[in-house]
Design a protein around this nucleic acid. Structure first.
Lengths: 128, 128
DNA sequence: CCGCAGTTGAAAAGTATTTTCGATTAGAGT
DNA sequence: ACTCTAATCGAAAATACTTTTCAACTGCGG
């Protein structure tokens, strides 16, 4: 599982693997594109400030992506690569794995790509 | 110019084209991926609350996209389609026009695509 | 040019996020 | 295993951000 590798990365960067950080990590792994409140619910034993700081830390080491799906910020583990379909009508969010990105055609540049986010907006089957 | 078409869309949806809304529209057109503060600087005559409401309105009719480029929310006109390269090292944001998206391969689904956002993270030439 | 539904802005309320700082703790070195 | 210390934690306070309220104002259809 990838959680181990995140812990390793954390240690490798000189950060301690505290129980609070592990709790946030587990909370993140238990859901997708969660808001701060949802993460908080999943690890109520961790202080609010620490959750903020931990999410910052995880973003910094590239373990977490922050998204904007229309409402406030949402967070998810960067490891399970997928993208989002957001229905502008009912607000439903679904994921799809298949990455329709042709990274080759950006390859010519001097920019070293490490990650990307892609959100697709439209109307879901139910709303049409 | 596309600003006209946004005004038309606004009227078509039953919204009035007030001077405040036009000012926000012009502010948006004068820059790219701006924060609320930057927009506000460009139309200081418009009240803060009205800017929030206008951005909501524009998002609703699809004239404006809201982005998360790492710091807080940012806004830009949806009309000039482009994507973002964000350097995780220095924070610089640059745009590229060429859309590397193969929308065909999502076409099979019952989801009607109207828009999308794509952000690419990495390290820029200067930081490498 | 009248009237009113839609719109505006100032202030207040409500949320969200960051800073501060004393207490606590993971993990390196022994 | 034990100590030590820099890193981390959490509660409260400060700050920043966003939404609600409501009385006054205005674009635009008739």
């Amino acid at each position: 599982m990838g959680l181990e590798s995140i812990v390793g990365k954390m240690r490798g960067c000189g950060y301690k693997a505290t129980p609070q950080r592990l709790a946030v990590l587990r909370a993140l792994a238990a859901g997708r594109h969660q808001s701060l409140g949802e993460i908080r619910t999943r690890c109520p034993e961790v202080g609010l400030v620490t959750i903020y700081r931990t999410l910052d830390l995880f973003s910094e080491i590239g373990a977490v992506r922050r998204l904007d799906l229309g409402d406030g910020p949402r967070y998810e583990l960067a490891e399970d690569h997928h993208h989002h379909l957001i229905c502008e009508s009912c607000g439903a969010v679904s994921e799809f794995e298949r990455c329709p990105l042709d990274l080759g055609c950006i390859g010519g540049m001097e920019f070293e790509i490490t990650a990307h986010t892609l959100e697709i907006y439209g109307r879901c089957a139910g709303c049409r």
